[in-house]
């Protein structure tokens, strides 16, 4: 497996002379892998996301995505945030079509193959349990449904890289677990071609979903631990109640507590 996202010795500040947001980050995520980044709040997790997608450029170090050093925003990355950020003047289906209006080759094909793309979007909606919600406006959907639609929008153009910044943070516990399974299945369907980086502060979420977990220290953010999670896939939500699962969560928690104490 080749590394898909690779950060080596990356340091970054937002204002010149300001405190470092991240300091000497080393991260390597393989192609098709599901990686999670956990850490205390304000540790620069979101900065990491911006660096990996080329929305920010590091002051020191190198960011390589898909074998190329990042100098512009990486095209074709899908993103989802804690807020669904759907456009209120578009229906859910039209929101889903937004990336297709921008990303090539879909952009030039969209007008002629409209029906094909609409069918694809509707199939995607159905796969996350939103069948028939395409004609509704986002504000007519519940929070969990909006977040599902937001995930669909991040995936409709079949990106190779999916960035998730605490996408389930604002949801209730039941909805969150449902959406864990949704994202697990979406990742499984793209079998090995979709690399996911999930930023979260929910350790159970990270352990359930990820193949590889990075722990970050508080600001300036550094990687203080990296561990692989070797539960077989597909994982059932029941594994979150097994002792092995709890051990991993405990272990991560201890390391983050340590990082907080030394900060």
């Amino acid at each position: 497996m080749r590394p898909f996202v690779e950060l080596t010795g990356v340091s970054h500040t937002y204002a010149t002379g300001g405190t470092l947001a991240v300091d000497g980050l080393d991260i390597k995520v393989n192609e098709g892998e599901f990686a999670a980044v956990v850490g205390p709040s304000g540790c620069g997790k979101s900065t990491l996301m911006k660096l990996a997608t080329g929305l920010q450029f590091p002051q020191k170090g190198a960011v390589v995505v898909d074998g190329k050093e990042v100098r512009d925003p990486v095209k074709m990355a899908g993103m989802a945030f804690q807020a669904p950020t759907l456009l209120p003047w578009r229906t859910t289906l039209e929101n889903l079509m937004l990336p297709l209006e921008i990303v090539e080759p879909h952009r030039s094909r969209l007008r002629k193959h409209k029906a094909e793309y609409v069918a694809k979007a509707e199939a995607l909606l159905e796969s996350v349990g939103l069948k028939g919600a395409g004609a509704k406006f986002p504000w007519q959907l519940s929070g969990g449904m909006q977040q599902r639609a937001s995930l669909c929008r991040a995936l409709i153009h079949e990106p190779k890289l999916l960035m998730l910044d605490e996408p389930f943070g604002a949801l209730d516990a039941f909805t969150r677990e449902e959406l864990w399974c949704v994202i697990r299945d979406l990742h499984a369907r793209m079998s090995g071609t979709l690399t996911v980086i999930l930023v979260t502060h929910d350790l159970r979420e990270a352990v359930f979903l990820a193949d590889r977990i990075f722990c970050m220290s508080s600001r300036p953010g550094k990687i203080i631990a990296e561990r692989e999670v070797e539960f077989a896939r597909p994982r059932d939500i029941e594994i979150t109640y097994t002792p092995q699962f709890s051990d991993i969560v405990h272990d991560l928690r201890a390391r983050i507590a340590e990082a907080r104490a030394t900060a």
Partner: peptide, 17 residues
């Protein structure tokens, strides 16, 4: 919203788009 702008930029959208 800066996040919406991020979503667009990560798709490679131009300023005009």
């Amino acid at each position: 919203e800066p996040e919406t702008e991020d979503v667009m930029k990560a798709l490679g959208a131009t300023k005009f788009q």
